[in-house]
Amino acid sequence: MAQKTKNNLPSADGSAEVVTHIGPGTRIVGRLSGQEDLRVHGTVEGAVRLSATLFVEPEGVILAEVHARDVVVSGTVVGNLHAENAIVLTASARVVGDLRSPRISVEPGAAFRGSISMEPPDAEALEAEANASRSYGATRSASAPLVRGAISERPSNGDSRRAAPAPARQQAQQQQPQSVRLPPRRAQAFTARPEPRNFDPNHFEPRNHVERGSSERGNSERSWAAREPVRATLPPAPSAALPPARRPAFEEETIIVQHAAIRSSDDRSRRRAEALPPADHDDHAATPDEPRKKVAKPKPLARGKHKVERVD
């Protein structure tokens, strides 16, 4: 891949005339922004935001969050790099941080620790990105092939948290049409609660075995959305059967496996639409200041859902 895109990548020796130049004995602490190429031989700490190319020369040191169109690193960078176009780590590069750019080239000899994401950096915080991804779905999915092809450059030992959501999100966008996505308010509620407190971890184990597609950390909105009916279904069950805490684990697993198996089938989107009718959203929006309600809301609907599944 590096071979293919090499011609379009900014060259390390910089064919264009570089005006701005941070000498080796100069240190800048603070925010640096601009619209022209910047060549750093010295030290820059803080934040860098350029609409052109940032060159980190072999003796240059960047301790900063960097946003630029292109970044060519021959020196040392500690911090996250966001590039609209491309990131190049040359053989002498030393980078600790996360890379985010549609195109990333790592030459042999470069030292790098961090994660790589090849989605265009169109949102600042990753949490915000995860939430906003529902509305950005159309534009994001355009970059899906790039992500697939290039993700192999990610180091296997690194923290893959940032890179992992990318494939999962792409899948989610491709598999579920726009009409059945959860409303934003619900999405925030689930994202804000990473693990359901009242839920036995045993309930999650079988689901993870069944639904292999999403890793434990990389489960983005798709997994949360998929998980929600299960969590909502089991607590109200005691009226029909024994309390969940007393029941043998295998029974619960069986139920969950049924859920997962049905969910993974093709009519998942239809089921989602049934489980979350528009009336529920309106009702839910009427009481936004009660966070507990948000979680408890799907219960009655899910119970009805549950019965349908067991009949199946």
């Binding site: 005006v19 701005t20 100069t26 800048i28 022209e36 190429d37």
Partner: peptide, 22 residues
Amino acid sequence: MATTVIGSSIVIDGEISGEEHL
């Protein structure tokens, strides 16, 4: 090249320190 040049479109909010021509 013991000199530092801040280009015309560059904005730096912070501190610049060094031993060379600026």
